[in-house]
Nucleic acid binder design. Structure first.
Lengths: 316, 316
DNA sequence: GTAAAGTATGAAACGCATTTCAGATCAAGT
DNA sequence: ACTTGATCTGAAATGCGTTTCATACTTTAC
């Protein structure tokens, strides 16, 4: 198959000229250009991309850290990233962490090793300072509210979204509002608690259901909700999958939505429409696209909040 | 930051010795080993992985071709692949094709360029011969029924699964059975038609709904189903998402499941349980894990059919 | 006591493309 | 006729780690 020098020899030119032809540089005579092209063809030449990476010092590859690839929230962000990557001729390296810190560090190290030019962190477990340390090796994009000067960020204002959702419920007469979160110490969980406290001054712990990420979790939460002595009359739920599980299980248990319990979900996942779930639409695909753009623009650090909108359906 | 030669100089050894230490080769004296480690520490040495890739001629990276990353079917396979990759210290490069042939070719070329050691094709658009040509550059794993000698495969027997589902419905008295497919010329669509013909000898075209991949498609199909003069009394549906859309829309339109129309889905996605969808459980996570193992075992070509099971719920 | 086997080390070759620098040529401008 | 500036071209340096081969010194084995 040969390399660039073989082509050079066969075409009677130097390796530099071959490289120029192969990279469409100007200043190569038509005859030599053709000779190189012919020789490359004849030798069935294929670039060794690793040599290019080594030589150029970059790989046109972006790493993506996400806890679960097949979760609709992260999957949709990933889809947006992938679409933008394709458009820009970049490759994508994904690391599914399952919320494991070591996996995350592994991914961060890909940048240190020059395996990727940039890194998009859709969900973070490591301390932020640690992540920031890595920003010397390449561009890091955080999908969370963050305004430091070393890393870009693109995020949904969970505090605002949650507050708006609570207010929406309060305005409709609800005062007993429960909510679900993924992990108690998660960043958006804290934002939710803060928002809740700002509206109601007090969070009743038994109305906070953690570990809610999947449909099954929604089913489980419905069971837990049912057993409460003082049941919330409304629930703000992590995402539409959890909401779907919750609503379907509530119905199975004989409760009415929104009669017995009103529900607001998050994401505006396609499942929300046929289930009539009132939800907060999050432009996740778009968020992914922005994250990608930030990742390939290491020089300009920006912080972009993407808007959300309440989609009113029948669950409230 | 320095490279291996800087370390060698500082430690007073040769680059070969440094490489040996860094790769845990035996035959290095304790003193020199320590000297190298100290020097590496002192220089904050970090390997340039691209040099390693170039030198070794492989990247410990597997490429994954899939049409949509955020689709539950492919997302779950990907999740299995990702889990196996992590366990084996491999990286993953993903290419979201959106069923675009050029994207697929792009991905195939990653192997030619030595960017990835192997490739897992979860869904294929290119002619099989073309894909096979690439198998000289690395290991290719197909997630479809295939028994050639150059590429491994891991797949669900769609013909068998579909036939079993139809028989299941027929045994329960259904003779007017419709079904949905993704694309008319898709491989599993052909398998479905064949299975259908084997049971009923004749496929009524208006009972075949194509372009059914998402929840929205399910909603649309429900509308189409309603408008038929002769409505099927049972539907075999592409996957549980489409089934969910179909069922929810049917209910909204005032029909009973399974009274007016029985439904069987595919995948056994978590949404199927709370919706009571009778479905064919497909071990997609496992399929992904197997695919990965095959991808990193280029020497042994295997063909593995993974089993499916009918999960009986209330939609039939 | 000598052959065989094991341990330890470095030089050099290998993998390969890109890019800078210096030199050469040719056309255009004054 | 002479200076610029643009167009070509190749040698050599650069990016960097791995691995083979040759060599030399120790042990063990018989």
């Amino acid at each position: 198959m040969g390399n660039i020098h073989d082509i050079a020899r066969l075409a009677g030119v130097s390796a530099s000229t071959v490289s120029r032809v192969l990279n469409n540089h100007p200043y190569v005579s038509t005859e030599k250009r053709q000779a190189v092209l012919d020789a490359a063809e004849q030798l069935h030449y294929e670039k060794n991309i690793n040599a290019v990476h080594l030589s150029r010092g970059k790989t046109e590859t972006i790493g993506v850290i996400l806890p679960y690839v097949n979760h609709p929230y992260f999957g949709t962000i990933l889809s947006g990233i992938a679409a933008a990557a394709e458009e820009n001729g970049f490759k994508l390296m994904i690391v599914q962490t399952k919320y494991d810190v070591n996996q995350e560090i592994d991914a961060l190290n890909m940048m240190k090793l020059k395996q990727v030019d940039g890194l998009i962190i859709t969900s973070r477990e490591c301390p932020i300072e640690m992540v920031e340390d890595y920003s010397t090796y390449g561009s890091i994009v955080l999908c969370e509210a963050w305004t430091g000067s070393q890393m870009s960020s693109v995020y949904i204002n969970h505090f605002k979204a949650f507050k708006e959702a609570i207010t929406f419920l309060k305005d409709r007469g609800h005062s007993k509002i429960g909510y679900t979160i993924v992990r108690v110490d998660g960043k958006s969980s804290i934002a939710r608690r803060n928002a809740y406290e700002e509206v109601f001054h007090y969070v009743r712990d038994e109305w906070v259901f953690d570990n809610s990420l999947t449909i099954e979790d929604g089913v489980r939460v419905a069971g837990e909700w049912k057993e409460l002595e003082k049941r919330p009359t409304a629930m703000l739920i992590t995402n539409d999958f959890v909401a779907a599980g919750f609503i379907l299980e509530c119905r199975r248990l004989g409760f009415q939505i929104p009669g017995d319990v009103a529900v607001i979900g998050f994401d505006n996942h396609p499942i929300a429409a046929p289930l009539g779930i009132t939800t907060i639409d999050l432009p996740l695909q778009r968020l992914g696209e922005i994250a990608f753009q930030q990742a390939i623009s290491p020089t300009e650090i920006t912080h972009q909040e993407v808007p959300f909108t309440i989609v009113k359906r029948e669950s409230v």
